[in-house]
Write a protein that binds this DNA or RNA. Structure first.
Lengths: 242, 242
DNA sequence: TCAGGTACACTAGTATACAAGTTCGCTGCC
DNA sequence: GGCAGCGAACTTGTATACTAGTGTACCTGA
């Protein structure tokens, strides 16, 4: 960080520089920093292993260290950042054992929720979920991948609402965040149309009042990413550990 | 909080005063504050609804606001503390809908883990789990309830280890922490011997190679507390909301 | 006596200053 | 040329100072 010459300054022009936050004065700064960093990490804009320094982040986005530290503390809980006291912090590498565990968590919870949702399934709930899938198709056609992923979350969340277990969603979301980077790597654009078909198949089974089949389709849907992951480890070796 | 007279000062002699932390200089202060507060909340030493002020806590345990704030932030994530900006913070009341959701999470995960553990069950794993139950019986005989609860955690965690899904435990633990206050209320000393028997029944089924029966016993074991909870709401109305 | 306004004490959020520890490169000696 | 040792610059952890917003008690006036 020697500011000896303009050339040295140029060295700072890495991924962190593209971290631009538009602040809403009514909301807490630390929350907004947390969300911005989390999105940047999950979207791989800040790749695993990236060194992050509290000082550089707060210089970059123009706030003091306090809210930045608060955000990083929360990201450590999310297992998306690792802090080494007095040494430094970095975007956590993707730990294969953690991916296994969190994938297990997500699958176990989503399937359990789906079974509960199927007991309370109604045409209205079905229509709402199908609307989400339709919007996903539109987002995909527009090439708006961020919106596509947001709608994907909505789709999976809708089952929690249907099961009257909305509180379960936050836990699913945390597990999801811990494996989402793998999903992003795995979602070459070619796979996304298949996602739509898989979502539709789950709803078809629910509409037919066949919870076993619905659970089976959801299981299949969630198993795609891990299956693809195996093939990714080689080409993105730097991102993974263990 | 007007310090008008000595009598008013006496008013500060509430549960917070019994918050004594013996610091280990090698570990981070904020971590130790977090653990101390979490334990105090779950053990109901700080009952739901207790007003907590960052300033009073840091005066009480003799550190600055920074690590206390860090600890409270983490407790908010755990849903054990609620913060109202510029107004105050309090130990979160027990929210019935959250208890439902987190009980659902815990049950879904523990049963899924147990099924996986049963596939890899060995006499060594069985012996280790039975050893824990034996220690629990000793702790109960000694009246050491804290140790009893610690061993209870160990028992449930052992299935994650057996299933080679240790990463799942931290998520179970969070859901557990969110319902543990109910368990504490429900565990009149009379119930604890039954816990030992229920633990034994689960191990018996695993040893017989009967995962269905093991899951059934675990389900029964985990369902005791919610069943008892219904009877508690009346007598501890102040602790609950919704 | 009661209503309204003001001042103060308290809250949490943010900024800054200081402390303790690690890394790495330069300098001087061998 | 190579190695030892010192030092500067960086890291995160903690303490303190300041800001902005809230509620309440008290005082003033009718």
């Amino acid at each position: 960080m020697v500011a000896a010459a303009a050339v040295e300054i140029e060295d700072e022009d890495d991924a962190l520089v593209r971290l631009i936050v538009h602040f809403d004065r009514r909301r807490q700064v630390s929350d907004q920093v947390y969300e911005a960093l989390k999105k940047a990490i999950i979207s791989l804009q800040l790749p695993p292993g990236t060194l992050i320094s509290e000082n550089r982040i707060c210089r970059q986005i123009g706030v003091s260290r306090t809210p930045v530290r608060s955000a990083i503390t929360r990201l450590v809980e999310d297992e998306l950042v690792e802090v080494f006291p007095q040494k430094g912090s970095l975007v956590a590498p993707i730990k294969l054992s953690a991916v296994r565990s969190n994938h297990f968590i997500r699958k176990a919870l989503e399937i359990a929720v789906l079974r509960r949702a199927s007991e309370a399934w109604t045409p209205e709930l079905s229509a709402r979920s199908r609307q989400i899938v339709t919007s996903q198709a539109a987002a995909l056609a527009d090439g708006d991948l961020e919106h596509f992923h947001d709608l994907d979350q909505e789709f999976h969340r809708s089952f929690c609402l249907a099961a009257n277990l909305e509180g379960v969603w936050s836990t699913i979301q945390i597990a999801k965040a811990r494996v989402d980077r793998v999903h992003r790597l795995a979602s070459g654009v070619g796979r996304l149309p298949l996602v739509l078909a898989e979502h539709g198949a789950i709803l078809d089974a629910l509409d037919r009042g066949d919870p076993e089949r619905a659970a089976e389709r959801l299981d299949y849907h969630l198993e795609r990413a891990p299956a693809i992951m195996e093939t990714l480890i080689g080409s993105h070796e730097k991102y993974f550990v263990e």
